[in-house]
Lab assay of single mutants.
Amino acid sequence: MQRVNMIMAESPGLITICLLGYLLSAECTVFLDHENANKILNRPKRYNSGKLEEFVQGNLERECMEEKCSFEEAREVFENTERTTEFWKQYVDGDQCESNPCLNGGSCKDDINSYECWCPFGFEGKNCELDVTCNIKNGRCEQFCKNSADNKVVCSCTEGYRLAENQKSCEPAVPFPCGRVSVSQTSKLTRAETVFPDVDYVNSTEAETILDNITQSTQSFNDFTRVVGGEDAKPGQFPWQVVLNGKVDAFCGGSIVNEKWIVTAAHCVETGVKITVVAGEHNIEETEHTEQKRNVIRIIPHHNYNAAINKYNHDIALLELDEPLVLNSYVTPICIADKEYTNIFLKFGSGYVSGWGRVFHKGRSALVLQYLRVPLVDRATCLRSTKFTIYNNMFCAGFHEGGRDSCQGDSGGPHVTEVEGTSFLTGIISWGEECAMKGKYGIYTKVSRYVNWIKEKTKLT
């Protein structure tokens, strides 16, 4: 034993070699072989497995989906700052455009905790909710729209109204504003409101030439003092309507412009014939205590009207009353817009006519005020429907199939267009061939041609 100890002390290297040989010859039971080890760690190889990531292109799944990435790591994937920024906006807080917040056709661009709407022409605001041009839906104005110097929408209202708090709607500024039905039992019968379409306001006024200088022999019209197929109006439903009495009662109609003036057809009036105007009328054979009678003290036909040349060209006249009318729910003026808007309103496509005229061709006159909704007829169809001249200051309205029309005794009465609950004068009943005849239409004086003249002559002093 002493000898062994001496050998170990003198030859430590020998001992180490012996131990190493023993270990190498022993069977290893701690580690699995290569094949079995792979069965336990069965993990798919990654895209760049075996390579240094710093030297390969980034992978979106590896960089940002398996674990949260930084902007720089995302930049490695896209290799483009702009594309990385677009991805980053949604990656950080989701897609803010998912709810489609942009209105009126706006395009949404996502941002971090926010979004941006790219608005089409005519709109602005956070969600493109603000109209900035009158060309689109009248700028959301209830009545009139004008573009300011910086191309912003400025709404306005006709006389007797003021802008509401929203700067879009119009509200009454006087007790009985024009064009409004205020009798409670008839307010439910107000005709369907007309909503502004998209309009090209630059070209809204037709490029028409008034044929002022045409000389033409007097034409022989049949029954051209021209509501057939209409309905009984309720008291106060058309408070701007008046009836004219002269040699015979209810020979023509008219509309209240203001307390002192009536507008009617020029062919209705004769110099030297006494005319009485009755406002607030409903049943011409009954006294309903809503009527107001006034005498006409002055007749002003349009300066281009000449019955000797043509009885229905420039067929418009103004009547001055001896005493002002007292405005109330049964006696209310009709609204008159400017030339541009009167023309736009007419193009809405349908209007209402009213009167006490004959209820059928050569038949009896109506006792109760009649009204009828009539569609506008395109000019080409209008011209083809008659052998008589249709001037540019006239328009056609009615039904091709016949059966409904204005008729004798309705002449001078109103053709009105309702705009968001307020009625505007767009025409004056003038003439036609018979009444409600198939293929024939009622012919009306186009008020847009005469609004400046009306307003100039009827100013209240």
Rank of each mutant, 00 (worst) to 15 (best):
A149R: 11
S11G: 14
D150W: 07
Q167L: 13
N151P: 07
E76C: 04
K152C: 05
D150E: 10
L19M: 07
N304Y: 11
A317Y: 00
G13K: 15
Q185S: 10
L24W: 09
P235R: 10
Y91T: 04
G179A: 01
F176I: 09
I284D: 06
G179S: 02
Q2G: 14
Y450P: 00
N48M: 12
K68E: 15
V228G: 05
S184W: 09
A192N: 15
E159Q: 07
L319G: 02
W453T: 00
F176Y: 13
L20F: 11
L321D: 00
F424I: 00
A250Q: 11
E286N: 10
G13V: 14
E165I: 08
L460Y: 14
G160S: 07
A164R: 08
D405C: 09
Y330G: 03
Q2Y: 11
S107C: 04
P120E: 04
V199R: 11
V278F: 04
N343M: 05
V353P: 01
S329H: 08
M394N: 13
H415N: 01
V359R: 14
V331I: 08
L321G: 00
C170H: 01
T276D: 06
S255A: 04
W88S: 15
K68H: 09
V153P: 12
T16A: 12
A307T: 07
F224W: 13
V257Q: 00
K45Y: 04
A380R: 07
T16H: 11
S354I: 14
R43Y: 04
N5M: 12
W261D: 00
G421M: 04
K126I: 09
T422L: 04
F176P: 01
K146T: 13
F71M: 13
Q167P: 03
K293D: 03
G253A: 14
L327H: 03
T194K: 08
N306Q: 08
R373W: 04
S169W: 06
G439F: 03
A164E: 05
T445M: 12
V353D: 01
N452E: 07
R379Y: 11
T215Q: 09
T215S: 11
S49T: 14
V359L: 12
C407N: 04
N59T: 12
V56F: 06
C141Y: 00
C141F: 00
L376W: 05
L325C: 01
Y91R: 08
G236R: 05
R83N: 15
H302Q: 03
N127Y: 06
T215R: 07
E72N: 15
V278T: 13
T381M: 11
G94R: 14
L103N: 08
S114A: 11
S406D: 15
S411Q: 14
T389S: 07
E79I: 15
H289Q: 07
T264E: 01
Q408P: 10
G253Q: 08
G106N: 00
N304M: 14
T332R: 12
S423T: 09
R404M: 05
M8T: 14
I390A: 08
Q57P: 14
G160Q: 03
E171F: 09
A37H: 12
I17L: 13
S430T: 12
G403D: 15
T458I: 06
D131N: 05
E79H: 14
G254L: 00
E259L: 04
E418C: 06
V56E: 15
Y22I: 14
S448C: 03
C157M: 00
V183K: 10
R191T: 10
L383S: 15
Q185Y: 14
I275W: 06
I210C: 08
T276V: 08
N36I: 08
N313P: 03
D232H: 11
I297L: 11
R140I: 06
R294A: 03
P301K: 12
S350I: 07
S11R: 11
V242R: 00
G432L: 03
A436L: 09
Y450E: 01
I210P: 07
S187R: 13
V416G: 04
S11D: 04
V273W: 13
T422C: 05
V277Y: 00
P177H: 02
W240F: 03
H314S: 04
K293Y: 14
S25M: 15
A436E: 11
E73N: 10
P375G: 14
E320T: 01
G106T: 00
M8I: 14
G439A: 04
I262A: 03
I214R: 09
Q219G: 14
G122H: 04
F348G: 13
I334V: 13
S107G: 04
Y115C: 00
K440E: 15
G412F: 07
L327Y: 07
G439M: 04
S406A: 09
S365E: 15
K109S: 07
V228Y: 08
K387N: 15
V56H: 14
I15S: 04
I136N: 10
E27Y: 06
A149L: 09
V77L: 11
G50S: 06
W261Q: 00
G21Q: 05
C128N: 00
R83V: 11
I316L: 07
W88Y: 15
A9W: 15
T84W: 04
D212V: 12
Q185E: 14
R294H: 02
V451T: 05
D223T: 13
L24M: 11
H415L: 03
D95H: 14
V277H: 00
A308R: 12
E285F: 10
I390N: 14
L211P: 08
T381S: 05
P239A: 03
Q241M: 15
W431E: 08
S169T: 11
E98H: 09
L20K: 02
E418M: 13
K68N: 15
I112Y: 11
A250G: 14
N203K: 10
P44H: 07
T218L: 11
K39F: 07
E165V: 12
G13Q: 11
N36C: 04
W118R: 01
N283C: 05
N393C: 03
N113W: 04
A317D: 00
T84N: 11
L32H: 15
K146L: 11
G230W: 15
